[in-house]
Simulated scan of single mutants.
Amino acid sequence: MARGGSRPGEIAKSLIYGIGDVDVGLAGPEARRETLDALEQQELETAHAAGIEVTRKPRQKIKRIQRALEMAHERRKGKSARSSSRVDQAARWRQVGIQERIPLIHLSLPLRVVILLLLATVDFYVFAQAYAYLTDVEDFSPEWWVGGGVGTIVFLTGLVLAHEIKALVLGRAQRKLLQEIDDGSIKIEDDCRERLVCTESSPIMLGLALFGFTVLFVFGLLVRLVGSDENWSISLLLSLVPVVVVVVEAFIHDPMDRAEPRRSLLEWLLERKLAKESENLAVLQEKIDRAISRIKHKYVVERSILATEQADMGLGLQAAAESRVGPVDHSRDPDPTLGASSNGHIHLPEQGSVGGNGGL
């Protein structure tokens, strides 16, 4: 059978002249068209199979990323469901102006993060130096890092203490506001009053946070004042850093700043990765589609050339005529004495047979 060529018309001409294939060269017009269709189908199937193989791994990778992203979305939805009541309460309290009744300094999130990181770094250094003085070791030794870890714990304890203090202040402000609403001093919607719930601060949690913070703070203060060779005023100033952490966090922390869980870093990374892999897959698919389009266009050209070449050579005219008028039947010849023998020769009548008297 003829094989596909690279030049336009090469396949069509090979089908007509039978280059390398006598059977194809002797075939009729319909057989040549069927052969051309079969060659096109074979090339298309090969191209489709190659495309599936090329895109198999990218598609599998995209499916894995999508599954991981769906799991991350489900975790965020679970967090949203658990915190939905707190978010709703915070929104209701903001509507009645509770933020105006508590000490609060509004700061943007990036600025707040910078301030807390600075305080955490200073706290780490203060306790690292204090533990180094206590154990008489050099800086950046294992003991020094242990002291820094203790300082980090003091910092976190100070944050917890500041939040508990702010919750206590918020609860008192909420109860006072509700009392004013009930007395009629402040007017709000009736259904809104029934849905407001006061924040309750736990004395046990407040006591635990205060006890832990006080013990660690006093320990760091005594070590700085007793074991340090620095000026006592400088040591006292550095030792008060944990207290500064509590005061600052108590003022900048907004207990009513409750929102739906934000998109996590993992989700962001997965979405970026999914977009990149999808773009790569789209590029591959576009190349495959172009290759398939080239194959189809090539065989459109080959069919046109085949039809033109066959028409120029007079191939297929008899078949076309027979398809219009049907095959010739010699049995209906008007002269019954003429006929075709089995070997294709025409028999002529013998002399004397015409007229029945042996002559004209």
Results as ranks from 00 to 15, higher is better:
Glu43Cys: 12
Ser85His: 13
Arg94Gln: 13
Gln60Pro: 06
Ser108Phe: 05
Ile98Thr: 04
Lys63Leu: 09
Arg76Leu: 14
Glu74Tyr: 08
Gly97Gln: 08
Glu45His: 12
Ser85Val: 14
Trp93Ser: 03
Gln42His: 13
Thr55Met: 01
Gln66Met: 05
Thr55Cys: 04
Lys77Asp: 09
Glu53Gly: 04
Gln60Val: 13
Glu53Cys: 00
Glu40Tyr: 05
Arg92Lys: 12
Lys57Gly: 10
Ser108Arg: 00
Ile102Gln: 01
Leu104Gly: 10
Ala68Tyr: 10
Ile105Asp: 12
Gly51Trp: 03
Arg94Lys: 08
Arg59Pro: 00
Ser108His: 02
Lys79Phe: 14
Gln89Leu: 04
Glu40Met: 14
Met71Ala: 10
Gln42Pro: 01
Ile105Asn: 04
Leu107Gln: 06
Gln42Met: 09
Ile65Cys: 03
Ile98Ala: 03
Gln42Trp: 11
Glu100Met: 03
Pro103Asp: 09
His73Leu: 14
Glu74Arg: 07
Ala81Ser: 14
His106Pro: 06
Gln60Tyr: 06
Thr55Trp: 00
Gln89Asn: 03
His73Asp: 13
Ile102Ser: 07
Arg101Asn: 00
Lys79Asn: 13
Ser85Lys: 11
Gly51Arg: 03
Arg59Asp: 00
Ala81Phe: 12
Leu107Arg: 02
Val87Cys: 15
Gly78Pro: 13
Ala72Gln: 02
Ile102Met: 07
Val54Asn: 08
Pro103Leu: 12
His73Met: 09
Pro58Trp: 10
Arg86Ala: 14
Lys77Thr: 07
Ser80Ile: 13
Lys61Cys: 00
Glu40Thr: 00
Glu74Asn: 11
Leu39Phe: 08
Ile52Gly: 09
Leu39Glu: 02
Arg56Ser: 13
Glu70Arg: 11
Ala68Cys: 04
Glu40Trp: 04
Pro58Ala: 00
Leu69Glu: 01
Gly51Asn: 06
Arg75Ile: 14
Leu44Met: 03
Arg59Phe: 02
His48Asp: 13
Arg86Met: 12
Ser83Gly: 15
His106Gln: 10
Glu43Gln: 08
Arg76Cys: 08
Ala72Arg: 05
Arg75Phe: 12
His73Thr: 14
Arg59Ile: 01
Leu69Gln: 02
Lys79Pro: 11
Ile105Ala: 12
Leu44Asp: 06
Ala47Glu: 09
Arg101Lys: 09
Ser83Gln: 15
Val54Phe: 07
Ala91Ser: 08
Arg94Cys: 08
Ser84Met: 14
Glu53Thr: 08
Leu107Thr: 06
Lys57Trp: 14
Glu70Lys: 08
Leu109Asn: 01
Leu69Phe: 04
Gln89Pro: 04
Ala50Lys: 01
Ile102Tyr: 00
Ile62Arg: 05
Gly97Ile: 14
Glu40Gln: 15
Arg82Cys: 09
Gln42Tyr: 06
Lys63Trp: 03
Thr46Glu: 11
Ala81Arg: 15
Arg94Pro: 10
Ala81Asn: 15
Val96Ala: 07
Val96Leu: 02
Ala68Glu: 15
Lys63Asp: 05
Val87Asn: 11
Glu100Ile: 01
Ala90Gly: 10
Arg64Leu: 10
Ser108Val: 10
Ala49Tyr: 09
Asp88Lys: 13
Arg59Val: 00
Gln41Pro: 02
Leu44Ser: 11
His48Met: 08
Arg56Tyr: 11
Met71Pro: 00
His48Gly: 05
Gln60Leu: 07
Asp88Met: 11
Leu69Asn: 02
Val96Tyr: 07
His106Ser: 06
Ser83Thr: 14
Ile65Ser: 02
Gln66Asn: 01
His48Trp: 14
